[in-house]
C-alpha cells in the first residue's frame, strides 16, 4: 500500500518542465563521467563513448535530459545533429591536456557560431582539477578566451568529475540560467 501511495505522490509532483542539456568536448575530457555523476552512478567502469549516451535526471524541479556525445574527431561532425532545442550547452575541458587546449578552443567557438545554439547558456567545466599538472579554471578561461563571449550568459566551473567535486555547483548555475530566461 505504502508503495502505491508514494508512487501516486511522485506522479503528482512530476516535474513541470523538461530540459535538454548537451554535453560536448574533446575525447577523454570526462563527459561520460560527468553524466554518470549527475545520475548518481558508479564512475569506475567508464568506457570511451562510441556514438552517444543519454540519461534523464530530476533536479531542482526540472527533468533534465542530458545528452553525452562522443568527442573523438570522427564523431564531431555529428554533434550538430543534436543542437536543436538545447537549453544549456555544457562544454567539458580536460584541464591537464595542455597540448590540445587550442584544439578544444577552436571546437568550442565553432559551436558558439552555430545558429541553432544562438543564445543558449554555456557552462564550461574545467575538469580534472585533481591532477597536479592541471590549469586552474581562471587559466582555462584565459586560454580559451571566454571573456570575448558577449552573445550569451556563460560560466566556468572548476571540477573533478571522478569524485563529483564541483559538478553540483555547475548544475545549480545551469538551472538558474534557465529560470532567468
Amino acid at each position: 500500500m505504502m508503495g502505491l501511495l508514494s508512487i501516486l505522490r511522485k506522479l503528482r509532483q512530476s516535474p513541470e518542465k523538461e530540459l535538454r542539456l548537451l554535453l560536448l568536448g574533446l575525447d577523454n575530457a570526462g563527459k561520460t563521467t560527468i553524466l554518470k555523476i549527475m545520475a548518481s552512478e558508479d564512475v569506475t567502469h567508464v568506457t570511451p563513448t562510441a556514438g552517444f549516451n543519454i540519461k534523464s535526471v530530476v533536479s531542482d524541479g526540472f527533468k533534465l535530459n542530458v545528452w553525452d556525445i562522443g568527442g573523438q574527431r570522427k564523431i564531431r561532425p555529428y554533434w550538430k545533429n543534436y543542437f536543436e532545442n538545447t537549453d544549456v550547452l555544457i562544454y567539458v575541458v580536460d584541464s591537464s591536456d595542455k597540448k590540445r587546449l587550442e584544439e578544444t578552443g577552436i571546437e568550442l567557438f565553432e559551436l558558439l557560431g552555430d545558429n541553432k545554439l544562438e543564445d543558449v547558456p554555456l557552462l564550461v567545466y574545467a575538469n580534472k582539477q585533481d591532477l597536479p599538472s592541471s590549469l586552474t579554471s581562471a587559466e582555462i578561461s584565459e586560454a580559451l578566451g571566454l571573456h570575448s563571449i558577449k552573445d550569451r550568459v556563460w560560466q566556468i566551473q572548476a571540477c573533478t568529475a571522478i569524485n563529483g567535486e564541483g559538478i553540483k555547483e555547475g548544475m545549480e548555475w545551469a538551472c538558474k540560467s534557465i529560470k532567468k530566461k
Binding site: 575525447d27 577523454n28 564512475v43 569506475t44 573523438q72 570522427k74
Partner: peptide, 22 residues
Amino acid sequence: WQDIGFQGDDPKTDFRGMGLLG
C-alpha cells in the same frame, strides 16, 4: 592508431575504466 579504431594518436587514454583487461 586510428586505423585500428583508437580515438586519437595515443591509445593510452582509451582504456579508461576497463584498464589492462580491455
